[in-house]
Amino acid sequence: MKKREVSGILAQASRDEVGQIAGSIKERCQIRIVKQPQKTLVMVKARESIQKSLFYLGEVLATECMVTVNGMKGISVMAGDDFEKVTDAAIIDGFLNGQENEKAQVLQEIKSLSEKQRARREKLNKELKKSKVNFNVMGE
């Protein structure tokens, strides 16, 4: 799993869900906060599709944190202002940066979170697809 996928799943998850995964890591690893969680802005860059040039769309409120897990650095940046969640996500990142043989279980937990998120979106997606429209041109 790439960092982008893991972080995307954790960003969509609730504080409790992320906390649950980080909880087991906290029990067995030594955690040190390198950079306390703090708010930051993320400037969103976009590429417009007509002339394919870049521009700044605006800023997103985010929170960042850096920790070490058994000496391995872990970082998280997440939209919103949830200090607890971003700290737990940084702990998960630090854990995944080391501990080769114990990563599988954590990745499995993250994968099942992703499945849950997909299932939650299914209901809305079905409702959206029901508004698919096919206008008829009169006379054709």
Binding site: K39, T40, L41, V42, M43, V44, K45, A46, R47, S49, L54, L57, E59, V60, L61, A62, E64, V77
Partner: peptide, 15 residues
């Protein structure tokens, strides 16, 4: 917003 640091610039979003 003017009180916050801007520590990150995103990669171009893929619309």
């Amino acid at each position: 917003r003017s009180t916050l640091p801007r520590n990150y610039y995103s990669n171009a979003i893929d619309t």
